[in-house]
């Protein structure tokens, strides 16, 4: 992994704090717009310890362990120790998850296939690049230091990196090669 890049896994479960610096929950997932070049984070799914209102509406009673999707504008800063939100708990803006691509749910560990539907390998890690408060998708990693990718996969990744003029790490599929995300699998241009 190159300098300035982070693993999605390192952000998941990171503490989330509100405008008053109170711990309110942890990061559950991140929604990305795959059509943007490069794909950018649009929403953050936060696992709240509790809440008594959703989108300004007061609930009949407080609920515990709830996951809410919040627009990225709600994110004030991403720090190594926590992600900071703009508003005070529980006055957060919320967003619908309908039609959204969630990296943990839909991408990480999921099956990659080529355009003909042949299985390639699973997504072993998702590589992101923070720039200020924004978060961009760099690519999909195949293999780990202790788990090398197969030779066929190495060839495919090498070809893709040359096609999209990427230097450096050899085991990261550039985001441009992601054709679409179907239910349960990612279609990769090989």
């Amino acid at each position: 992994m190159e300098e300035g890049q982070v693993y999605l896994a390192s952000l998941l479960r990171r503490e989330v704090r509100d405008a008053k610096d109170r711990e309110v929950g942890h990061v559950e997932d991140l929604a990305f717009d795959l059509a943007a070049k490069p794909p950018v984070a649009t929403d953050i799914a936060v696992h709240l310890q509790w809440t008594d209102r959703i989108g300004g509406l007061l609930l009949p009673r407080p609920v515990e362990d709830i996951v809410l999707l919040m627009p990225w504008s709600e994110v004030e800063a991403i720090e190594p120790e926590a992600v900071y939100l703009r508003h005070e708990h529980p006055e957060f803006e919320v967003a619908s998850s309908e039609g959204k691509l969630l990296l943990r749910r839909d991408v990480l560990n999921k099956q990659m296939v080529d355009a003909e539907g042949n299985r390639l390998q699973r997504v072993d890690a998702v590589i992101l690049k923070p720039e200020g408060v924004l978060l961009f998708l760099e690519g999909l990693q195949v293999g780990m230091e202790w788990f090398p990718p197969g030779r066929r996969m190495e060839r495919i990744v090498g070809k893709l990196r040359r096609r999209y003029n990427r230097a450096g790490e050899e085991n990261i599929i550039p985001y441009e090669a992601i054709l679409r995300v179907d239910e349960g699998e990612l279609v990769i241009r090989t």
Binding site: M112, N118, R119, Q121, R122
Partner: peptide, 9 residues
């Protein structure tokens, strides 16, 4: 093994 690592199986 193939299912776990995503290889054709």
């Amino acid at each position: 093994v193939c299912e776990a690592f995503g290889w054709e199986a």
